[in-house]
């Protein structure tokens, strides 16, 4: 009975196994990046950049059809371009980075949808907007796994300066003048990489889902970055698995169901979280002696 519900779908169908591996890879790479996005107050930046990837991927689609390398390279190029342009506009003009990102992503999203519609059908459009987590081929799985590997290695490498750049950038600059800028660029590159990975499985609209929802969930359970990261990865992985099982039995679309499960974890944590959740602030208990 339990076996039938929880394990059989994956034993029986290869596409379910592939989807599970893909979701786990996304959680492994994306959730830690999401934690740092949140701590840098860039949660919405991730969202904006996810949309900005679309026109690049769409041009790849226009030229080569549903080709993994073309859409990946296009998405990466567009993501980097928008990240750098938004930073540049913020530094050179009066517009702040968040406002310029909002401008860029609206234009990008519209442009991407128009480009896909030029050649493709509505099915293709749904494909790029919401992804195809149940149709991941070998190449895509390798891509997702590689992105997760690169992300974890790079984060381990820049962990110390990145945390410092978030908390006390002036101190970092005083001990190492160039580290801050380099670390920021590496981090942005990781964000784009993970968004492109997320794009293949979950589409441009939900790519940030396995990044930000687990991160925001984890914040309600710990005030320690390491523990937060571990919780976020766990929440992402469990959401991926539970979402797939739920979508299989209830006949729901897989990608959105995964995100909904992550959203469920977020809501529960929002209420019950031990580190700053709603219940804690409504019923804090009697005050202590000292």
């Amino acid at each position: 009975m339990i076996h039938d519900t929880l394990i059989a779908p994956f034993v029986e169908f290869a596409f379910m196994r592939r989807a599970l591996v893909g979701a786990l890879a996304l959680a492994l790479g994306g959730a830690p990046v999401g934690v740092f996005l949140m701590l840098r107050r860039m949660s919405l930046t991730g969202d904006a950049m996810a949309h900005a990837i679309l026109p690049g991927a769409a041009i790849g689609f226009l030229v080569y059809g549903l080709s993994l390398p073309a859409m990946t390279l296009g998405g990466l190029a567009a993501g980097f371009a928008v990240a750098l342009l938004a930073g540049l506009v913020a530094r050179v003009t009066v517009l702040r980075e968040d406002a310029s990102l909002a401008a860029f992503y609206l234009v990008s999203l519209a442009l991407g949808v128009v480009i896909v519609s030029l050649k493709g059908s509505n099915v293709d459009l749904l494909h790029v907007l919401f992804g195809t987590v149940l149709a991941l081929d070998d190449a895509t799985l390798y891509l997702l796994a590689s992105v997760a590997t690169v992300t974890l290695a790079a984060l381990a490498l820049i962990y110390r300066p990145l945390a410092l750049e978030c908390a006390d950038p002036n101190f970092l600059r005083s001990v190492s003048p160039r580290a801050g800028g380099i670390v920021h660029l590496i981090f942005l590159a990781l964000v784009v990489l993970n968004l492109v990975a997320g794009f293949h499985a979950l589409g441009t609209l939900l790519a940030v889902g396995l990044m930000m929802l687990p991160a925001a969930t984890a914040r309600f359970w710990s005030a320690d970055v390491t523990i937060m990261t571990i919780v976020a990865v766990a929440v992402g992985a469990v959401s991926g698995y539970a979402g797939l099982v739920l979508s299989y039995h209830a006949g729901l679309p897989a990608g959105p169901t995964i995100i909904l499960v992550a959203g469920g974890f977020y809501l529960i944590s929002l209420v019950a979280g031990s580190a700053g959740g709603l219940a804690r602030s409504l019923w804090p208990g009697r005050h202590l002696e000292a």
Partner: peptide
């Protein structure tokens, strides 16, 4: 100039 909301001990 320090972000004291950053979770650091």
């Amino acid at each position: 100039e320090i972000d004291r909301s950053f979770p650091m001990s």
